Amino acid sequence: MAPSRAARPGPTASARLTWMAGVVAAAPGERVLEVGCGHGVLVDLLAAAGGEVLAVDRSPSMAAAAVRRNRARVDAGAVAVQAAGLLEADLGFRPVDVVVSFDVRAFWTPPAPEWDAVARVLAPGGRVLVGFSVMRPGAADDIAAAVDRLASARGLRAVGLHRGATAPFPSAAVELRAAAEVTRTG
């Protein structure tokens, strides 16, 4: 049986967001928080895995576009979109299994108070993936170090750096876990 249309990336999914969805590899039943969801393309790809996606974007027009793109899943309760910055968003009381962002500079530019919100909502054993476009040689390592430094102040540690040969620029994603999880497993 062929996969349903909702389970496949739409024709406007960029190579970088398709790659990022593969790195996240959201599992059915996982609760995912996407920060800076834009038009909701990555939301669509993440929700196709069968989990619950909470998406935030500080731009009301981007949040509205994400709702339009994901209308069926919003109506079904599988996707929720908020027009708010991460610090102002109502993230609810249930922890999230995965936090994901792509090209959200707040995660590597001090003082990065967004990490406080991430640390507060991340479930035990949860993971964070901070993706970004690599615009110059060496940028992936520089950004990964900045992400690790800022996140470590909130009890998270980098456990890997994923690299993707996407167009028009390469992509990278820092994967993080709670420091206690890193110590226990690694």
Rank of each mutant, 00 (worst) to 15 (best):
P95L: 11
A64E: 06
G38K: 13
L33H: 08
V74H: 02
R127V: 09
R163V: 05
A2D: 12
A123R: 15
S59M: 07
R8A: 11
L54V: 13
P137C: 10
G50T: 04
G22V: 10
P9G: 08
G126N: 10
L45H: 08
G126C: 02
E52I: 06
G38S: 11
T12C: 05
L176S: 13
L54Y: 07
A146L: 10
L86F: 08
A84Y: 03
E52H: 15
C37N: 07
P95C: 15
L46F: 04
M62G: 01
A80Q: 13
D90I: 03
A173S: 02
R58M: 01
V134N: 05
A153C: 10
S101Q: 03
V118F: 05
A63Q: 00
V23K: 12
R149H: 13
S133A: 09
P28H: 06
R58N: 09
G50E: 01
R120Y: 03
H39S: 13
A153D: 14
A49M: 01
R105M: 02
A47T: 12
V159D: 14
R5H: 07
G38H: 10
N70P: 07
A173W: 05
R73Y: 01
G36R: 06
V159C: 14
E114Q: 12
A180F: 00
G164L: 05
D44N: 06
A151V: 14
L156H: 12
T166L: 10
M135N: 12
A7H: 14
T12R: 15
T183G: 01
G38A: 09
P11T: 11
V23Y: 08
D142S: 15
V35L: 02
S59N: 09
A180I: 03
H39G: 02
A76D: 10
P170A: 12
R94H: 13
V121I: 15
G77D: 14
A179E: 15
F107Y: 01
D44C: 03
T185M: 04
V41Y: 02
P9M: 08
A72R: 15
V128I: 12
E34P: 10
A119K: 07
A158H: 01
L87C: 07
A145L: 08
V56T: 07
V118C: 06
T12V: 04
V41F: 01
A117F: 00
S101E: 01
L17W: 05
L42S: 08
S59P: 03
I143G: 06
T18G: 15
P137I: 10
V81M: 03
D103K: 09
D57A: 04
A158P: 04
F169Q: 13
W108S: 04
F102H: 14
A178Y: 04
A167P: 05
F169G: 00
A119C: 09
A72V: 12
A72W: 07
P28Q: 07
A112E: 08
D97C: 05
V104E: 02
R69F: 03
R184S: 04
D103Y: 07
V56F: 08
G40L: 00
G50C: 00
A146T: 05
D90K: 02
G92R: 14
M20C: 04
M62K: 11
Q82M: 02
L86N: 00
V128Q: 08
A55F: 02
S101Y: 00
D116Q: 15
G160Q: 13
G51S: 15
R136T: 06
A153T: 14
A139W: 04
V53K: 06
L156W: 13
